[in-house]
Design a protein around this nucleic acid. Sequence first.
DNA 1: GAAGTTTTGTTGACGCGTCAACCAACATGG
DNA 2: CCATGTTGGTTGACGCGTCAACAAAACTTC
Lengths: 160, 160
Amino acid sequence: MAEVRWLTEREERAWRALQFMQMRLEAALARQLAAESGLSYPDYLVLVALTDRPDGRLRLYELAGVLGWEKSRASHHVGRMVKRGLVAKETCDDDRRGAYVVVTERGRRAIEAAAPGHVAAVRRLFVDRLTPEQLDAVGEAAEIVLAALDDPTPTGTPAR
Amino acid sequence: MAEVRWLTEREERAWRALQFMQMRLEAALARQLAAESGLSYPDYLVLVALTDRPDGRLRLYELAGVLGWEKSRASHHVGRMVKRGLVAKETCDDDRRGAYVVVTERGRRAIEAAAPGHVAAVRRLFVDRLTPEQLDAVGEAAEIVLAALDDPTPTGTPAR
DNA sequence: GAAGTTTTGTTGACGCGTCAACCAACATGG
DNA sequence: CCATGTTGGTTGACGCGTCAACAAAACTTC
């Protein structure tokens, strides 16, 4: 049982600032979206994922994959969106377990109305606050951490 | 009505990577905490905030302030933690509306048991994946964005 | 082609978080 | 001292997210 390597002051400061930023940022963006377009942030992400496709449709498991969601989350959320008419579910012929999620016309209008305000908010609150170099640095760091999350190799594992 | 300034490819990439990292990271840490100590991530944050105080107590509104939570969230969450015996509520004498939240012995044991594993996970998944320079860069960027969130001045506002 | 496994999706229960409405106590200002 | 506003906290409803259990179709393998 090794000693606990607590975080240094600098490490803790960076970690806390990042956590705090994320929380505040998401809250602000969610509020802005809800106020200006009646969409929740997850709604927005689903609609973006769907409208990014030429046919505006995605299998449920693909949607979950793209967004990094658990399948049950995707199922629950799509269910709610169907109720509000933003998307529809269609059965899949080649795989009779499967289900397609398709944007409806209403969904398309909703995201087209929401996108400009959302992007403006992302700029105002985040992108335009940082220099391009800072943005790159943050992006690169995030990609490194993400890669480590996907690859479960522990830190400092020797090549052997 | 100005043109929409969409995100450039680089901006979008950084923004998405950051969002994704945050989601995955929080999920992983929450899972780890729950599995190893039966605490949720919010539980952990509350206990840290309380045990950081010499007397292990905080007014509810102070707790909300420290964690950046809405008061109703704090109230709900503390209520649940009281039920599980992790904290207790005490009435406040100088302000009879007020309520103190106090760590219980059980809460103290819980966080002492949870902390080493949690810190190790933060290291393994995040801190130790980045160079000290990257960590500083990320921390600084986060602090800039946070400062902008607190100060509602829009981007590029001239001094005038 | 039957048995076992993996994949796709749903469901229900339960904890979490926000919003809006509300209440009680403090503060201020005629 | 009453009116008015502000602050600290609670509550209920509702959407969100996870987990575990489940069902059914699709693969695999012998």
